[in-house]
Amino acid sequence: MLILVAFAVGEGALPIFSAEGFQFVIRTDWNAVYGRESFGALPYIIGTLLSSAIAMAIGVPISLGIAIFVTEMASHRISTPLSFVVELLAAVPSIIYGLWALFVFRFWVRDLIERPLYEHLNWIPFFDKTPFGLDIFTAGIVLSIMIIPIISSITREILLVVPNSQREAAYSLGATRWGTLKTAIFPYAKSGILGASFLGLGRAIGETILVTMIIGNAIGPAAIPTTLFSQGQSLASLIANEFNEAASDLHLSALIGLGAILLLLSMIINIGARFMVSRMVKVVPGGRE
């Protein structure tokens, strides 16, 4: 199945790669006007990676915190409803997050996070742009909100698999809660947690609708973010934006070419995740009760 898809995408992308060669990956212009066509994917690769990186930087620590709180700290009375809510949030379709972000959340981000950062820290190049609320930074934050339920519910399950005998081993050595996390729980669950994070990253990279609604939809060199508050574009969002109105075969092929790059990125991530998880599985049999 995957091979069929990869084959079809590769075939569709062939014209653009034969027209532009490797240049397609590193060029920045994007011109669909007949006769003057030229396509470069770099801004969207950057937009994809940067928005996902922001999502991970915010999402992973919070997800870890939630999973640890639910499994290791909270009493049953709190943890049961909380994990239920998290599971529920994981099932919300991304367009719902997108709508909410478009009509409500982006104003909060703009007024409560971006403005203060701009006003006080604009000597840092990252923050030196009047924020508008539809930009890479907001897209990253909304993506993080989308992946937090996913990462934290998987991490929760991984922590639940850590045998109690491991926790007790640490406690019996006079470990505090934190010491037990550090000595017994994290090392045991590390690769699984990494795998869960990669899964979240995969979702963030491929997310289309939500990013299209929030990221600002810049095109060409303008889509290269110079600050976190720049309008950008991701691979998936550009495909979604232009696929219906592709002007020429080469334009269409360029969009499929973006798809090919996206597919490659997600496959790399998937293989990475699998590798991590398989390392975890190797540790588990001996350690399990």
């Binding site: 045998p163 005998s165 491991q166 007790e168 081993a169 640490a170 019996s172 050595l173 006079g174 470990a175 010491g179 000595t183 017994a184 090392p187 045991y188 590390k190 540790v283 588990v284 001996g286 350690g287 009760e289």
Partner: peptide
């Protein structure tokens, strides 16, 4: 810390070396 405990099933820390297992309590 004053009362050690050994469990029914051996439960060394699976990701640690022999040395680190023994040193775990000291580091903690």
């Amino acid at each position: 810390r004053r009362i050690g405990m050994v469990f029914q099933k051996p439960n060394p820390f699976p990701t640690m070396s022999i040395f680190d297992n023994v040193a775990a309590g000291l580091k903690l």
